[in-house]
Design a protein around this nucleic acid. Structure first.
Length: 513
RNA sequence: CGGGGUGUAGCUUAGCUUGGUAGAGCGCCUGGUUUGGGACCAGGAGGUCGCAGGUUCAAAUCCUGUCACCCCGACCA
């Protein structure tokens, strides 16, 4: 009996329903995506995690280019005085800025390295780049003919967070920030909405995560913005997570940075600016949206490897044959195009137990696993397992047909993950009209160790910050977004259950990350 | 930054109340047996018990401080 080595029921312990935050960390570790570093709040992104990020980057970048944007790069350091230019902006970020105050190290009398040469003006490490990019734009913009300016930058930013969590909230993180200047308010507003739509398409079609899109209430708005648009996704513990934001900045930052131009009418006008961003946090969102108790589950479109071929070589005499067949199959698959790029195939020829190898790839979330052994050579079949299906499930596919079906299989997984996520979200999105029901919805039965509960509540709201504040205080629930008025979410006047006052439309309430 | 908890080998941990020179499982290395499923046998490497003080003949164990991490709050992509 092999009692001691009996496999755990699930590859990840604890399970999601036992301890969701701990499960999340274990998935990241088991998939070798990232790990904590010696620097507090900062993470090391390992190749598997970084490969996912690179795919996200390339795909979004293509979408930015297609909408007329170009990449550029601005400094990491922002002069302290720049930060002070926009009042609300300073207030929003001051508490989480890392500040560089010295320019060299010296050995002191005790032989210890100490900072020396204080800077005349301290430099802030960018928490975001509105101010320093604004300074450049102020120089570049003279006339309406210079507009619009449509620039994006991929970079790291630093926000000194109190409670870091890998991918979700780290002190340093990677992101993309778009910064645009427009001649008119309408144009800038259209840009803000357009980029939100780009994000929504990306998150839904590439990451297989459905979202609510809408506007933030005043209390949740980006510091200095006139309007903040957002996407809100539901993950498997039914909390909301923001999956991208787009800000209409009005003329606030243009005034602060002096972005002015001669208009068609010959007058001097301030530009209308926008900014929009998404970050490595989306990797955490993908994990929490799709991963299961056996590890990561990757939407094929962002998987660093789409197909892993597992050669089974029980007998030395058939080994070479099996490996050759595996390589041949890999070659056929690599010639295929999935979603604009070659299918990424890995042949795992490591001399490990078959089960061990298999589990590694399950934990990494590779969409398709293909087992190929001597018996398959004879029968002409391979066993194909989909990561969106139970681990033991496999389908025998004639080897000659696999290449013909691979793309469809990947597409099917992609669709299934989206459908599954949508189902989860819809199941836990509830229209609520009474305060009692609302409070019940968001209150766990076991307060000592809260079980997974709640979800999204669609409830009326009188539009005041007081109601928001009260509910946040009572339940830790906030307005995640005020949906746009469109055919999908038509406005529906009603009564705010918290104040009894009239409400123009339902808004989305949830606990959030 | 407040409240709670935890720090012992790469990971999970026993030992701590009742001080007496550090134990296990997984993983790792070597050899062998295996091989359609997270294999088995034998041997082996790996720990200044988070760190710094203190009490003591003696500290993983008691005391003080400190750091890190986790959970809950305040803040946020």
């Amino acid at each position: 009996m092999a009692n001691q080595t009996t496999p755990a029921k699930t590859a990840i312990t604890p399970r999601r329903d036992e301890d969701f935050p701990e499960w999340y960390q274990q998935v990241i570790r088991a998939a070798e995506m990232a790990e904590p570093s010696d620097v507090r709040g900062c993470m090391v992104i390992r190749p598997w995690g970084y490969g996912i990020w690179e795919n996200m980057q390339h795909q979004l970048d293509a979408m930015f280019r297609a909408t007329g944007h170009r990449n550029a790069y601005f400094p990491l350091f922002i002069p302290l005085s720049y930060m002070a230019k926009e009042a609300a902006h300073v207030e929003g970020f001051a508490k989480e800025c890392a500040v560089v105050t010295h320019s060299r190290l010296e050995v002191d009398a005790e032989g210890k390295l100490v900072p020396a040469s204080p800077l005349t003006e301290p430099l802030v490490i960018r928490p975001t780049s509105e101010t320093i990019i604004g300074a450049s734009y102020a120089k570049w913009v003279q006339s309406y003919r210079d507009l619009p300016i449509l620039i994006n930058q991929w970079c790291n930013v630093v926000r000194w967070e109190m409670r870091p969590r890998i991918f979700l909230r780290t002190t340093e993180f990677l992101w993309q920030e778009g910064h645009t200047v427009h001649e008119t308010e309408e144009e800038a507003r259209a840009e803000t909405k357009q980029m939100l739509d780009v994000y929504e398409t990306f998150v839904r079609d590439h990451l297989a995560i459905p979202v609510f899109s809408g506007e933030k209430s005043e209390s949740e708005r980006f510091p200095g913005a006139v309007q903040t648009l957002c996407l809100e996704a539901m993950v498997q513990d039914r909390k909301a997570i923001q999956a991208g934001t787009s800000h209409f900045l009005g003329q606030n930052f243009a005034r602060a940075s002096g972005i002015q131009f001669h208009s068609r009418a010959g007058t001097q006008e301030f530009g209308w600016t926008t900014s929009w961003g998404m970050s490595t946090r989306l990797i955490g969102t993908v994990i929490m949206a799709h991963a299961d108790d056996d590890g990561l589950v990757l939407p094929p479109r962002i998987a660093p490897t789409h197909v892993v071929i597992l050669p089974i070589t029980p007998k030395e005499e058939t080994r070479a044959q099996v490996l050759a067949a595996a390589d041949k199959l890999a070659g056929e698959l690599r010639a295929l195009n999935f979603f604009g790029a070659p299918i990424e195939v890995e042949v795992d020829r490591r001399d490990l137990g078959g089960g061990l190898k298999n589990w590694e790839w399950i934990k990494k979330g590779v969409p398709l696993r293909v087992e190929l052994g001597p018996r398959d050579l004879e029968s002409g079949n391979v066993a194909v397992s989909r990561r969106d299906q139970p681990v033991k499930a496999k389908e025998l596919v004639p080897m000659a047909e696999l290449a013909g079906r691979a793309v469809a299989l990947l597409e099917s997984i992609q669709e299934n993950l989206l459908a599954r996520a949508k189902q989860l979200r819809d199941k836990h999105t509830r229209v609520i009209d009474s305060k009692e029901e609302f409070y019940r919805f968001f209150t766990p039965e076991n307060s000592a160790k809260p079980e997974i509960h709640g979800g999204f509540a669609l409830a009326h709201w009188n539009g005041t910050g007081e109601v928001e504040e009260q509910i946040k205080k009572d339940l830790k629930v906030t307005i995640r977004c005020i949906p746009f008025d469109d055919s999908q979410n038509p406005p529906e006047p009603g009564v705010c259950p918290f104040s009894g006052q009239p409400s123009a439309r339902r808004v989305v309430w949830a606990k959030s990350y």
